[in-house]
Simulated assay, not measured.
Amino acid sequence: MEITLVQGDITEQRVDAIVNAANSSLMGGGGVDGAIHRRGGPEILKECRALRASRYGGGLPTGQAVATTAGLLPARWVIHTVGPVYAESQDRSALLASCYAESLKVADELGARVVAFPAVSAGIYGWPMDDAARIALSTVRDAATDVEQARFVLFGPDAYTTFQATLDRLTQA
């Protein structure tokens, strides 16, 4: 699988699926989640409400993933995943890795070939960017998937630089 990095706005990516760093309620929020819901329009929220009324009455569990329409976004689907909140006192890296692995499984079920990822948990959830990049890139690189391109869409120059340095280290290893 090809892994690419771009600095930009994930809601502008013309891909098969956009991964949303969602909160467990699936009802939108801040950061990437809020941007996806605002730009994607009411169809995303409508499907999220249906998911909450059926399979995910208590919310989407951390590390899991589920798909909805992409609404008005230039993608076919949004894959919602709930990242863990960072805590120095507890190793939650397996949950963060699960966000990427489960998102790829959902992408495979959908037949998505190009998937755009944000830096899950590296914003308001406080995950250190260098560790978030290592977990994200190594998990995606090592996944057994039919996805042909994983595109990491990083909002600012610091995130992009960190992901690029991490990708360089992983490809040299």
Score class of each variant (00 low, 15 high):
87 A>T: 15
87 A>I: 13
87 A>P: 11
87 A>L: 13
88 E>C: 10
88 E>H: 13
89 S>N: 14
89 S>L: 12
90 Q>G: 09
90 Q>R: 13
91 D>K: 09
91 D>R: 12
91 D>V: 10
91 D>F: 09
92 R>D: 13
93 S>E: 14
94 A>C: 11
94 A>T: 15
95 L>E: 15
95 L>K: 11
96 L>C: 07
97 A>D: 04
97 A>E: 03
97 A>I: 08
97 A>S: 11
97 A>K: 02
97 A>H: 01
97 A>F: 04
98 S>Q: 09
98 S>R: 05
98 S>P: 08
98 S>I: 03
99 C>E: 04
100 Y>K: 00
100 Y>M: 00
101 A>K: 06
101 A>V: 02
101 A>E: 09
102 E>G: 05
102 E>I: 12
102 E>V: 11
102 E>Y: 07
102 E>F: 06
102 E>A: 15
103 S>W: 00
103 S>K: 01
104 L>A: 00
104 L>P: 01
105 K>N: 14
105 K>P: 06
105 K>A: 14
106 V>D: 03
106 V>A: 04
106 V>P: 05
107 A>K: 00
107 A>E: 03
107 A>L: 05
107 A>T: 04
108 D>T: 14
108 D>V: 07
108 D>L: 03
109 E>T: 15
109 E>Y: 09
109 E>S: 15
109 E>H: 12
109 E>L: 11
110 L>N: 12
110 L>T: 06
110 L>M: 10
111 G>W: 08
111 G>T: 11
111 G>D: 13
112 A>F: 01
112 A>H: 01
112 A>Q: 03
112 A>Y: 00
113 R>A: 13
113 R>Q: 15
114 V>I: 15
115 V>L: 04
115 V>S: 02
115 V>K: 01
115 V>W: 00
116 A>V: 01
116 A>I: 00
116 A>Q: 07
116 A>M: 04
116 A>P: 04
117 F>N: 01
118 P>T: 05
118 P>M: 11
119 A>I: 07
119 A>N: 04
120 V>G: 06
120 V>C: 06
120 V>M: 06
120 V>F: 03
120 V>K: 04
121 S>L: 09
121 S>T: 14
121 S>K: 04
121 S>V: 13
122 A>N: 09
122 A>F: 06
122 A>E: 10
122 A>P: 11
123 G>C: 04
123 G>A: 07
123 G>T: 05
123 G>M: 02
124 I>V: 15
124 I>R: 10
125 Y>W: 07
125 Y>N: 10
126 G>N: 05
126 G>Y: 03
126 G>Q: 05
126 G>C: 06
126 G>H: 03
127 W>N: 03
127 W>R: 02
128 P>E: 12
128 P>D: 14
128 P>N: 10
128 P>K: 10
128 P>Y: 10
129 M>S: 11
130 D>R: 12
131 D>R: 12
131 D>H: 12
131 D>N: 11
132 A>M: 03
132 A>P: 06
132 A>V: 05
133 A>P: 05
133 A>K: 05
133 A>N: 09
134 R>I: 11
135 I>V: 04
136 A>Y: 05
136 A>M: 08
137 L>F: 06
137 L>P: 13
137 L>G: 05
138 S>P: 08
138 S>W: 02
139 T>H: 00
139 T>Q: 02
139 T>I: 02
139 T>E: 00
140 V>P: 00
140 V>K: 03
141 R>H: 13
142 D>W: 10
